[in-house]
Amino acid sequence: MATKKKRTPNVQNNSWVVIAADSSIDSQKHESEPAFVRLRNPSTDATSLYMLSSGDVQLFEVKAFEEDFHSWFVGQTVQRDGRLLFVTPMDPLYLMMPYLIKSGKEGKFQPVDQVVVDEEFPACSRLLRCTRSLASLHHIAEEKEVGKQRFHRYSHEKTMTWLKKKVERAVCVLKARNISVGERVKSRTYIRVKSESDYHDEDYLRYAHGLISEYLSEDLSKALLKHLQLPELTSPKESEPPSKKRKLSDKPVEAEEDYTKFNSADFARKPPKKMTAAQKSLAKADKTGMKTMSSFFSPKAKAEKK
């Protein structure tokens, strides 16, 4: 093979390919325009990019689907940046939760607009304008009404109940979409015939827990695992929850555009039942020109074969 050519950094990127929920670009009834804002990521505590629809009615998550060696043709132009961004509706409670937890430690009922404030991320108070925010706070907090004022206090029990429902919803979609949740299905070169019964409910629960943990602090993620009555796994090699594994493959987010990195280790569909010999050889041949698809599904060295 020829020596690897050093690629020049793509400094002049000014164009992005996005698949966006239609509701994110609907501006009919509101004065302000939709905007990308930086907010504190509840899992990493660092900056991530989110989007608020016009009038701050709805919150959206921005995820970058990214694979090495891809570019776009858009009409009659080349766009070097091969990322595909997804803008999907997001539950604002995930972002508000860390603030409520923090103030909940004082044990007092407080007006939520005094709780969801962040000097470093001033846009966070806009979360309270989202239609869903105030209407759903009771899922994670106790409420008290005094006169016209409403006061809230974080409730761990309520939060666990709410998160468990989230996990159950995710399990349903994982099952319905035939998304592979096992540890074994990693490499397209080493596919074994899998049947439905090879996946246990625990696999689905763990996987869904990993997906939800993307939005939780480590403590909360552990507490949820306990609430789901899933034992913490001790062998880190074979059975880390997906949330942990994904961190391994997360490249540091660029300072300029910190789209939360999208990683399709999140969901790999179950492999087809059988591959023809030709497909197998192609899957192998594919390795020369580009990163294999299988390496994208899983952290390296995990594609164990039998």
């Binding site: 997804f86 998304i179 999208f262």
Partner: peptide
């Protein structure tokens, strides 16, 4: 199994994670 095909499943999974409970 192509990753970009699977990426198109993300909105539905996101709806499960973020939809109202």
């Amino acid at each position: 199994d192509d990753t970009v095909v699977m990426a198109m499943d993300w909105p539905e999974l996101a709806e499960a994670i973020h939809g109202p409970v």
